[in-house]
């Protein structure tokens, strides 16, 4: 696990440590089971086609969960995530599987963030956050507020 980050360590413009993710059809099934989101849009080809999105798409909620993961990894065990919001601006498509465990080559997603504001009164830090695919498209964008421990305490 990464070293604990403190409020004094970050400045406006500081980057949140990038978190790399992939999505596979298998992971979408796993996420459906774990979250209870069994919308066929995420696993049935014809259903997705009829809705006009081409083929099954990555759950917006999984990309949102990646952004939560981005922030909680960065803030460490002593940080607290206070707020998070995101919007889904475009579709992302999972890699298909070539064996039980391994997917074919395909998209990789990069969860990124940047500090936009620091609040000295409560040691909270506001960030803009997004998920970027291999083409550089930001299909999921949002904002997060975390409270970081202070060295002054």
């Amino acid at each position: 696990m990464a070293k604990q980050i403190f409020y004094e360590d970050v400045q406006v413009g500081s980057e949140v440590t990038t978190l790399e993710k992939i999505a596979t059809t298998r992971m979408l099934v796993q996420y459906a089971g774990a979250s209870g989101d069994f919308n066929p849009l995420h696993y049935e080809e014809d259903f997705a086609k009829n809705l006009g999105v081409g083929r099954p798409i990555v759950h917006g909620l999984l990309k949102r969960a990646w952004l939560v993961n981005l922030m909680t990894d960065w803030m460490g065990q002593e940080g607290t995530l206070k707020r998070l919001s995101c919007r889904y601006r475009g579709m992302d498509y999972p890699r298909k599987m070539k064996s039980f465990e391994d997917p074919v080559d395909g998209d990789t997603w990069y969860c990124k963030g940047k500090v936009t504001k620091k609040n000295d009164a409560d040691h909270t830090v506001e960030c803009e956050i997004w998920v970027e695919n291999s083409k550089g498209e930001k299909n999921t964008t949002g904002a997060a507020t975390v409270m970081l421990p202070s060295k002054a305490k």
Binding site: L61, L84, Y88
Partner: peptide
Amino acid sequence: MGLLDGGVEYDF
């Protein structure tokens, strides 16, 4: 009938 998830906002 068409339904898509537009986004989410949390206050933890």
